[in-house]
Amino acid sequence: MSNSISLRGSTRTITEFFEYSINSILYQRGVYPQEDFTTIRKYGLTLLKTHDEELKAYIRRILAQVHKWLVGGKCNKLVLCIVDKDEGDKVEEWSFDVVQFSKLDQNQVELPQEVDDNETQNQIRSLIRQITASVTFLPELNNEGNYTFNVLAYTDANAKVPLEWSDSDNKPINNGETVQFKSFRTNDHQVGAQVSYRY
């Protein structure tokens, strides 16, 4: 029972992190205009969150389902793709790998020690700082407003998929470069992040 509570808590932390990460990326990369975002305090940082109802509803729908999958241990990756509207090419790919410790083979992998919430919050803070700071080295996206995005969830084949979700594919970026960010850890999960961009 306590494990279940821990898992749900961990999953909620991850889902919340996804929400703020997606919002931050969409703001930082200018996929949506600045005026669609408002500042809020989170993780001891000033972050930006959209107040566009349509976008909020879309992100909420995604994260509600991702939360369910994470609780069931069915989701192992979430990818945010930024796509050029004219070309239809993917220009950036922000991927978040999720490792659930209970799914690992305990004989082969040594499970990490327990981590407290403050430590997790610190790790998330540094990760979001890295995401924010990545704007400095990422190539500038010209024609602001000419980009759209898509969120892909990598799940197990036996995951229960609602009708509003469909299968997709994800091809790597041609001539792309990848930068690995820090990761954060809860008692049940480890989340890593990386960005790939067209060089």
Binding site: A153, T155, S166
Partner: peptide, 17 residues
């Protein structure tokens, strides 16, 4: 491997396309 890549049917990209 049994990994599925899923997306919402009415995502902004598909709408635009």
């Amino acid at each position: 491997k049994k990994i599925r890549i899923l997306q919402l049917r009415d995502n902004p990209l598909l709408k635009d396309q």
